[in-house]
Design a protein around this nucleic acid. Sequence first.
DNA 1: TTGTATGCGTTATCAT
DNA 2: ATGATAACGCATACAA
Lengths: 360, 360
Amino acid sequence: MTNSTPPVSHSIADIKALIHRESRRVTSYDVASAAGVSQSAVSRCFKPGASVSKATYARVMQAAFELDYTPNPAARSLRSFGARRSNLIALVACSRWTLHNPELLDELSHHFSLRGMRLLLFPLQLEAGVAEVLADIWQHQVDGAVIAAPVAEREVAEFERRRMPVVLFNRSVRDRQINAIVCDQAGAARILVNRLAAAGHRSFAMIDGPATSSIALARRRGVTERLAELGLAAPLHVSGEHDYASGARGLREIIDKLNGAPDAVICSNDLTAIGCLDTARLELGLQVPAQLSITGFDGIAQGAWRGYQLTTLRQPVRQMAQATADMLVGLIASGASGVERRVFSAAVVEGATARLGPAV
Amino acid sequence: MTNSTPPVSHSIADIKALIHRESRRVTSYDVASAAGVSQSAVSRCFKPGASVSKATYARVMQAAFELDYTPNPAARSLRSFGARRSNLIALVACSRWTLHNPELLDELSHHFSLRGMRLLLFPLQLEAGVAEVLADIWQHQVDGAVIAAPVAEREVAEFERRRMPVVLFNRSVRDRQINAIVCDQAGAARILVNRLAAAGHRSFAMIDGPATSSIALARRRGVTERLAELGLAAPLHVSGEHDYASGARGLREIIDKLNGAPDAVICSNDLTAIGCLDTARLELGLQVPAQLSITGFDGIAQGAWRGYQLTTLRQPVRQMAQATADMLVGLIASGASGVERRVFSAAVVEGATARLGPAV
DNA sequence: TTGTATGCGTTATCAT
DNA sequence: ATGATAACGCATACAA
């Protein structure tokens, strides 16, 4: 009895040489040839739960390993109709918000990773609209999208027409119900105003965020409405861009217009608040919070730095990110179209830059 | 005379209905049918520089627009041999470094966008290796990869075998030449030491970065070697993780071990330096830079905040990011395998947290 | 369990 | 300039 190789199989070396000569990638046919089986057998070995004999499976996997074979996802997604998933999620976000919230990107990619999906980045200029990247998103055949940027009703309709699942992160669209994970900005703002008012603050100023930001809008609305309800004077609004410089510029403008400092400056985000705080203490020599209370929104890491201990409203970013991943993955898996909106609450971080009264 | 439709073309509405009924995506055949041309004609209209008549082009594009047609990239990449591009770039990076460098992500995605490529995120735990995401990278058929994380020689070999272009960002691999964009960390460290020594500092301590970080290693090496060359005592090294807390912990450990403050603490990055600075001033009541000089590395935005004005070494991140995109796109386009290494220099940011002598 | 044959949507080649 | 047709690599229905 002599040793014999399987009838049709070629040697690994020969196949590698062939592939190299033709300068192409390894295909399932190559693996089949190396393992002495048919191409469909190889395909089955890579499909979880297919019916393959132990022996065949072992031979195929061995050959696949030696040839560095990976199924071509393009061909795979081309073939299977229902399952043509790219496992790609588009993340459309304004650089500012996303990048100054390391936690967000971190947590989002983590939770999507756990489900075998990866984030494809579509960064926008500060508060630019998603319109400019829409075409690109279609091109890349993503399975779904997370949008943390201003969206118009028209654009949401586009996603719907193409049946692409979308979850809005901390954004909303006028006149349209859409899946979203949000933090109750207005509610948080109201609580903040309550506690500032309870501590005796009477004159307020606010450094706003970008005009196109629905987050900034909601924060402003919450502040303004609650102050009115409490019978306090409307706050002085100055514009800002949610960055450090806006805080410095904003405070100077406020003091200029009021001919002095108000009791409290509510900043539309933490970065602005930090800029405001530095200017108040270091440039204007104001005692914070003794002479002037300064608050932010977000709860970014820098706010907790020893020199700041910013009084702010912390959004549960990690939970929100997880909820976003959960929701989007669910939508992709089920193909469902029911609209859901999950609202999280911000928590007051007492910090040391504002005098706060007791919670009501 | 009755109204008549063109011979072969069907109405947009009919086609849309058909597609909806069969619950599938729009294909070039649909567009062809709507425009009354062949499928090849449609294909040509989407290929830049193909020969199509004005009239045909217009009709096809109109139909494509009305049907929301986008060429299927899977099918496209399946067919074209040389040009089977996914237009995807893998960005493998440690969350810490990437996320605390908004500029990096910003600039990288910007420059790749200009060339029609998008970043696919493969974030790693702090200083984890790329091994764990390798399989995922192959799966996604990216055109190339930017790696800003620790890589082993073995892993680089994998990329080479699969002929996937790679550019290392601010990293290097032992015993292997590989395309890279780097900043001369050791050189920068030497310059820093020169200027600190010139200002009279004699006793040095250093808060290191993660042991696996080649950046941290290079910085430490530069500091140590230059101090030795100048005949000064070796610095006290304490470990750190390139974060804010490490700076605070590190300084306490240094003072504990030395029974007092050294002349200068060189921190392995800005975040650490800021933590160190806050602790020195606010917890220990030290005068910086009068009693103690503190320096960082990187040149992050927060270091320039009014309260810090950190003395540091600024890496030209934007230029480096652009160079990275240039190099990787070049490698992908040419298929070349020549190894290139572009080295940038860091610039001293004088700041206000260290006494510096004149540049030599 | 295994192999054969077919189609996914596109681009490229070749006629016309 | 345009249309027919052959791949591309894989998954699957079906036959064996």
